[in-house]
């Protein structure tokens, strides 16, 4: 029955092109107030969505739920046809291979060079040596780091490190890219370059979710903006802008 439900779920997702679906999702931690309350969020394949909100608004919790790092307390959560409330532990790795993730602090392996950092993602999904040698240089070319494949992370600027992280997230060709404050540690010039890359990636068909505080970027890019406040979605607008707290 489980499989039947899953298959049906997958089919629905394909029909509607819905890739992420949260219905009445709540998440409460064992201590304190709920982190997310009654969240309804539906994202279609190929969308570019900003998730904005102050710290404590539930953005990080949302990302963790989408990665199945956390389990919802109630409601329904479906990503790429996977029912994340019921998914078995051993199936989680396969599910996560559909999602690329980029963090504010890059999280590169400091002891390995650019090439190895990106190849690492391919090795994890057990690509052959031949494929790795083909895919890694190609993705490094896309993010503009083809010439620096031998450099160690500490020899790179913040912007370059974020590109390496982006290349690592994209090399496995994920359907969804989650970017958690990708410009949080970057200057405006580098921030814009990263955002342009994200837009380019989105144009090639990848669904992109960007969690950010960067008002200027959100307002300028005219994409869908979902605003969270104390665990509740307070606004969800096509071509929206950054809503001020007050």
């Amino acid at each position: 029955m489980d499989t039947a439900v899953k298959k049906k779920g997958r089919k629905d997702a394909e029909d509607t092109q819905e890739i992420i679906s949260l219905t009445n999702v709540s998440k409460a931690y064992s201590t304190g107030a709920p982190a997310l309350k009654d969240v309804n969020l539906h994202i279609n394949k190929g969308e570019f969505v900003f998730i904005v909100g102050d710290s404590g608004s539930g953005k990080s919790t949302l990302i963790k739920l989408l990665l199945r790092e956390l389990v919802i307390t109630s409601g329904d959560i479906n990503v790429m046809g996977y029912d994340l409330a019921r998914i078995k532990h051993r199936r989680i790795p396969k599910f996560r291979r559909n999602i690329g993730i980029v963090f504010q602090d890059f999280r590169l392996l400091k002891d390995r060079n650019v090439y190895e950092n990106v190849a690492f993602a391919q090795r994890i999904i057990q690509k052959s040596g031949k494929e790795i040698r083909k895919n890694v240089p190609s993705i490094l070319g896309i993010v503009g780091l083809a010439g620096k494949y031998k450099a160690k992370p500490k020899q790179l600027s913040g912007g370059e490190q974020q590109r390496v992280a982006l290349a690592r997230a994209l090399v496995n060709k994920p359907a969804i890219l989650l970017a958690d404050e990708p410009t949080g540690n970057l200057d405006p010039k580098n921030s814009w370059e990263i955002m342009k890359l994200l837009e380019q990636i989105n144009e090639s068909g990848t669904t992109v979710l960007v969690v950010t505080h960067n008002r200027e970027i959100v307002n300028a890019m005219q994409k869908r903006v979902v605003t969270l406040k104390r665990g509740v979605i307070v606004s969800d607008e096509e071509k929206g802008g950054y809503i001020d707290e007050d």
């Binding site: 790795p93 996560r96 999602i99 993730i101 993602a121 690592r168």
Partner: peptide, 16 residues
């Protein structure tokens, strides 16, 4: 720990 976390995010199996 950081490296293990990154591996898990990318979709490494427990065995890997």
């Amino acid at each position: 720990k950081e490296e293990i976390n990154i591996m898990k995010y990318i979709g490494a199996t427990d065995f890997f």
